[in-house]
Computed example of a mutant assay.
Amino acid sequence: MNVPTIRLSQLSHGGGCGCKLAPAVLRDLLADQPVAQVFPQLLVGTETADDAAVWQIDDRTAVIATTDFFMPMVDDPRAFGRIAATNAISDIYAMGGRPIMALAILGMPIDKLPVETIREILEGGRSICAEAGIPVAGGHSIDSPEPIYGLAVIGLADPAKLRRNADAKVGDALILTKGLGVGIYSAAIKKGALDQAGIDEMIASTTLLNRIGADLAEDAAVHAITDVTGFGILGHGLEVARGSGARVVIDRAALPLLTRAEELAQAGYVTGASTRNWAAYGAEVTLPEGCPDWHRALLTDPQTSGGLLVAVAPEAAETWVQRLHEAGYPLASVVGRVEEGRGIAVI
């Protein structure tokens, strides 16, 4: 693995989706924005904290637009580019769409990083776009004090097959397609406490495209989809609950985890974003009595390029878990359900 002399993870104050603004801060910033629905063609805007914006062209075609970028959470430049690109494209899949092209977003401290390192970041992103079958058709770059890379991505969907985060139904089962613990692994990398096997495991998870989202959207039994990123399983589950006017219940024993996630969380390798997440939405969460702090850190752990959280009719849940395993998502599991009520509960 090509690790530069200057560690990328040491050039930034945060890394991956742990860089995201806290949910409460973001809500405050967007509070006075005009109501999006004055534009009838705007099927999805900012009203439900969904994964991407959607604009309807005609009865069969809607355009999906998203952007995502962040600072490094690994030291290998090509891996950083691959992770950032996978994460950005995920928003298209989470809406049930298929990507068609991307634009690169690049900010680099050109006085600190060699040109070869920056090229490797760009090549990593391009390679993931090639896996997704799309070009990097352009972009924009600036000289910045911290390294930043990501994509703006455009996709297409049939409006009838669009999957929002706000359409879960009472009785639905909840499926998570990837393991949790990316933020915890990132914290360990930053402190030099994760071995190469752990780094490889994290990179494999965060560079696995969520392309199955487009297939999920073909099934009428799948009611809602979102991807689990910077706000953790609790934060994104809560967005589903709020948007759907229901209560989300998460079974903590059923949550799939990266191999060393529990061990590292108990050892204190957690991110500042995890703490900010809990401060932002903890009042709406019911935890089981005696839930230890390290387990709460797992539930609020920011996921970079995390899995899809899927609300599906209960009779179709096990079939979809099997299909997900066959499609290359071996940790996919039923992790909870949707009930009447409000907020999110962990059992």
Rank of each mutant, 00 (worst) to 15 (best):
D195Y: 08
F39C: 11
A152V: 05
P302L: 03
N210V: 06
S90D: 02
S274H: 00
K190W: 12
G81F: 02
A187H: 07
A220H: 11
G150Y: 03
V3K: 09
P114N: 12
I250H: 07
V222R: 04
A273Y: 00
Y329F: 12
I92H: 03
V335F: 08
V312M: 09
E201G: 09
P314N: 05
L156H: 03
E318I: 07
A253Q: 12
G81I: 13
P330H: 02
D76S: 13
G290D: 13
I83W: 10
R211Q: 15
T5A: 15
V136F: 05
G341Y: 14
V310S: 12
A311T: 08
E318F: 06
A137Q: 12
A297E: 10
G81M: 09
L308M: 11
D200C: 10
S186G: 06
I225P: 00
P314I: 03
Y281F: 14
T286C: 11
A160K: 14
L180S: 06
G150C: 07
G272I: 04
A217E: 08
I92G: 01
P40H: 10
Q10M: 06
P72M: 11
G235F: 03
H325P: 03
G282D: 04
T46K: 10
F80G: 05
L106Y: 01
A130W: 06
A132G: 06
V285H: 00
G183D: 08
I6Q: 09
L234F: 07
E263Q: 12
L180K: 03
C291K: 00
S274N: 04
V310N: 13
I118E: 12
S90F: 01
A36P: 00
A204E: 15
